[in-house]
């Protein structure tokens, strides 16, 4: 737990895969003491399984849940979550980007890669507020 207290406690967002909930340039508060996957709908910061980049997505399914995958289902392990972008391909395309990259690309994310729960936007001023669970 001690290493978690080092944070990050604040994050800036770049790119558009969490539109409209989060926009590029938003400043967010993170709770890095979160050690388990939070409830479905919560936005989390985590390291991507392929490449390790620090990213934010929404928990679409948690440990033990079944998620539709290809023509069937995938059952998540006890430490895994399914993290999905809010933005559709069309929204991302409007921002000049390709499809959002999330669990549909890199699969379930183990809790060891969880960095924290994203709970509050403190910038820009006109968008300050607690983040809803989608």
């Amino acid at each position: 737990m001690a290493h978690r207290l080092r944070g990050p406690w604040r994050l800036a967002i770049e790119q558009a895969s969490m539109e409209p909930a989060l926009s590029s340039g938003d400043w967010l508060l993170v709770d890095p003491t979160t050690v388990r996957w939070p409830k479905r709908g919560t936005i989390v910061a985590f390291h991507e399984p392929d490449g390790g980049a620090l990213s934010v997505k929404r928990v679409a399914a948690g440990p033990g849940d079944r998620v539709p995958f290809e023509a069937g289902y995938l059952e998540l392990a006890d430490d895994e979550a399914w993290l999905i972008a809010d933005a559709s391909e069309e929204t991302a395309a409007d921002a000049g980007l390709g499809p959002p990259i999330d669990s549909r690309r890199y699969g379930p994310v183990p809790v060891a890669l969880l960095v924290g729960r994203v709970w509050f936007r403190y910038g820009p001023w006109r968008r300050i507020g607690r983040l809803s669970r989608g």
């Binding site: 990050p8 800036a12 770049e14 895969s17 400043w27 910061a45 921002a95 980007l97 959002p100």
Partner: peptide, 15 residues
């Protein structure tokens, strides 16, 4: 002083 020092990507592919 308030600005975050860490950046996270809500990232998309750029094919």
């Amino acid at each position: 002083w308030l600005a975050p020092t860490t950046t996270a990507r809500a990232h998309c592919d750029l094919p």
